[in-house]
Simulated scan of single mutants.
Amino acid sequence: MLFNSLTFVVFFVVVVTAYWSIHSWTARKNLLVTASYIFYGAWNPPFAALLFSTTAMDFWLGRQIAKAKDQPSRRAWLVGSVCMNLSMLGFFKYGNFLLENFQWLLARIGIIYHPPHLDILLPVGISFYTFHSLSYTLDIYRGVLQPTRSLRDFILAVSFFPQLVAGPIVRAGDFLPQLVRPPGLRIGQFMWGLLLMTLGLFEKIVLADTMLAGSADRIFGYAGPLVALDSWLGVMAFAGQIFFDFAGYSTCAIGAALCLGFHLKDNFRFPYAAIGFSDFWRRWHISLSTFLRDYLYIPLGGNRVGWTRAAINLVIVMFLGGLWHGAAWTFVVWGLLHGFYLVIEHASRALVGERAWTGNFAVKLLL
């Protein structure tokens, strides 16, 4: 069920009307859980069971982490959660990719191997809800979140339908506190939510799909030579398409959540106005970049270690960030390039000094 479909419009109107008509907060949460699983199951019902199993296991593992009496036990339970989540994500999203590359590698050394065709169907939104669920056990392990006693609340935190299939990545620690008390219906907030949904759908349907996608496809699909202007127009059209496609969905999700009384964090803040790659990743897909920063980059040592180690950490994080976007070498290369760009930028800042860097006339002009 896509946001830009009549089915979703009808679904959303019914859910919102029923939600604000119910006075019991418990009944409202039950309604949202049911609606979220209907929303997800409308695409492929069996995969709703996969979503539930991931959620239930992390709920139980979170309690085990909190109850563990020593650090090795806590770490062991956390490793169990990480392995479970990443193994499911790895199988469904990267299974065929890894198998094909393994076959290619064997062929390079003269071994002919014909693996079985797995025909793996990728569950929609698995990259997002895996991180939703994983943030819960990670935050409990880090000591910044106490495990919730309500399985229903955690199910809702992971499966809340506005952010379930296309983000933003919502951490359990940000969403669970909003389930303690029922939100009140505020007309101004509700209208702002509808406005954001309208803006998001406009970005997705009109700008991304109608105005920019066709131009980008025609230019990149053209078999003959292109003049420089056409090439640049194609690049700009594609850049606009991916931004409005992704940001449009995120804006729509934030608006839909707001109509139900929930607050989701911004996911894009004018990324193409960034003055460097570090600034870009503070503006682009913020929920992913902060997730990778807090749960991967900082635990690896961040920039508190030597310069060489910090540079390696950046490349590792961006490599995995690129791979998260898709199972293809293009995403891997894209992630590695951004990692190297960040390393070069950090080295340049260290070489000329932060004051000289930010005092540059061009930077001041952009600021």
Rank of each mutant, 00 (worst) to 15 (best):
residue 7 T to K: 11
residue 7 T to V: 11
residue 14 V to C: 14
residue 14 V to D: 01
residue 16 V to R: 03
residue 19 Y to V: 05
residue 20 W to I: 09
residue 21 S to A: 15
residue 21 S to H: 08
residue 22 I to K: 06
residue 23 H to Q: 14
residue 26 T to W: 15
residue 26 T to G: 15
residue 36 S to I: 07
residue 37 Y to K: 06
residue 39 F to L: 05
residue 43 W to S: 10
residue 51 L to M: 14
residue 54 T to D: 02
residue 54 T to C: 12
residue 54 T to Y: 00
residue 57 M to C: 12
residue 61 L to C: 01
residue 67 K to D: 11
residue 67 K to M: 04
residue 73 S to N: 01
residue 73 S to F: 00
residue 74 R to S: 02
residue 75 R to C: 05
residue 76 A to W: 09
residue 85 N to Q: 08
residue 89 L to I: 08
residue 91 F to N: 01
residue 92 F to M: 07
residue 99 L to Y: 03
residue 106 L to G: 04
residue 108 R to E: 15
residue 114 H to L: 13
residue 114 H to N: 15
residue 120 I to V: 15
residue 127 S to Q: 04
residue 129 Y to N: 02
residue 130 T to R: 06
residue 130 T to E: 01
residue 134 L to Y: 06
residue 144 V to E: 13
residue 144 V to Y: 03
residue 159 S to D: 05
residue 164 L to Q: 05
residue 168 P to M: 09
residue 169 I to A: 05
residue 170 V to N: 06
residue 172 A to G: 07
residue 175 F to I: 05
residue 181 R to W: 03
residue 181 R to L: 12
residue 185 L to C: 12
residue 186 R to V: 10
residue 186 R to Q: 13
residue 187 I to N: 04
residue 187 I to G: 05
residue 187 I to C: 09
residue 190 F to K: 03
residue 191 M to E: 09
residue 199 L to V: 15
residue 207 L to S: 01
residue 208 A to S: 13
residue 221 G to Q: 06
residue 225 P to M: 08
residue 227 V to M: 09
residue 228 A to L: 14
residue 229 L to R: 13
residue 250 S to L: 10
residue 255 G to E: 05
residue 257 A to P: 01
residue 264 L to K: 02
residue 272 Y to D: 07
residue 276 G to D: 02
residue 277 F to P: 02
residue 279 D to G: 07
residue 284 W to A: 02
residue 287 S to I: 06
residue 288 L to R: 01
residue 291 F to D: 02
residue 296 L to P: 02
residue 298 I to M: 09
residue 298 I to R: 00
residue 305 V to W: 00
residue 305 V to Q: 13
residue 309 R to D: 07
residue 320 L to G: 06
residue 333 V to K: 07
residue 334 W to G: 04
residue 340 F to M: 13
residue 349 R to F: 03
residue 359 G to R: 13
residue 363 V to D: 00
residue 367 L to M: 13
